[in-house]
């Protein structure tokens, strides 16, 4: 049994992707189309159009005889030139790694890390790979966290569920229509999964990006906090409220307004008034 996934990037030490110091694996590809996505180059898989090859200053990209874009990780200087020119919200800078190969890159950070977080893109597009990767991590007592949009029913995937310590989940909007306008998808599954995870103490964090022109943040924060309040004794779920920022987003969305600090503080107080104990503004 060996499963692969397209790995966009591995951050060896991270202070912002869960408790303590963690290695973070970013997988490529996403089933959502969030308008405010701040790393849109992780959304699609490379279609081998080759537009990026000529723009690589390090010679790390080339086309082979079959027309595939090949990426040489060792030669890459991580200048992001290829990502900037990609017309498909993809990246040629992807390594296809097995769970074992990924684990070998995580293992190098032991004993400095307490765990691993897999993010994306949308990492749960690769559940078998995740199950194998997390099983390897658990053998060395590393904590395992998923950073997800909540679309996958983890309960239908016991091999993954059992080796997942916690989930950090986005509540992008409470209202289904708003959610659809923002992401092209409804949110019924997401909210159901959120509650089910909270019920078994595996929900570690929820996050809402505040983009005033598209998201009714007030309603989303209030309803989310209210829905989670009954379960906080099982795990003290943290609420991260994130201000939309134009850096990195696609240019058609870059002109959307950023929320002002008093509004963010109001949202934080709102979450707390509904019973959330730990609220972080970013």
């Amino acid at each position: 049994m060996t499963h692969r996934a397209p790995v966009n990037r591995i951050i060896r030490f991270s202070s912002v992707d869960g408790p303590g110091n963690r290695t973070v694996v970013f997988l490529q590809g996403c089933n959502y189309n969030c308008r405010y996505c701040h790393n849109p180059e992780t959304r699609a898989l490379c279609c081998h159009c080759g537009d990026c090859v000529a723009h690589c200053p390090a010679g790390a990209l080339k086309k082979d005889a079959d027309g595939h874009v090949l990426y040489a990780y060792e030669a890459c200087v991580f200048c992001d030139a290829c990502i900037r020119v990609c017309p498909h919200d993809a990246s040629p800078r992807i390594r296809s790694l097995t769970a074992k190969e990924t684990f070998e890159e995580i293992e190098k950070q032991i004993p400095y890390i307490r765990g691993v977080t897999v993010s994306g893109g949308e990492c749960t597009l690769y559940p078998s790979y995740l199950a194998e990767l997390f099983r390897l991590c658990k053998e060395l007592s590393l904590e395992t966290l998923l950073d997800t949009n909540g679309t996958l029913d983890l309960f239908s995937r016991p091999a993954l569920f059992d080796v997942t310590d916690g989930v950090m989940l986005d509540v992008k909007a409470w209202d289904a229509r708003v959610h659809r306008a923002l992401t092209d998808h409804g949110n019924g599954d997401v909210l159901r999964h959120m509650i089910a995870l909270a019920e078994c103490g595996k929900l570690h964090e929820v996050r809402t990006v505040v983009m005033p022109e598209m998201v009714d943040a007030e309603r989303t924060v209030r309803q989310t906090a209210r829905a989670l309040a009954p379960y906080l004794h099982l795990y003290p779920v943290r609420y991260k409220i994130i201000a939309f920022r134009p850096a990195g987003v696609r240019k058609e969305y870059a002109s959307f307004a950023t929320p002002d600090p008093p509004y963010l503080a109001y949202l934080s107080d709102l979450a707390k008034s509904e019973g959330m104990r730990e609220v972080i503004l970013i």
Partner: peptide, 18 residues
């Protein structure tokens, strides 16, 4: 980096690993 103020356990993990 100042963002680590929110996550002192990050430094704790590095100290204990070291």
């Amino acid at each position: 980096d100042v963002t680590v103020h929110r996550n002192p356990d990050y430094v704790a993990d590095i100290i204990r690993g070291a």
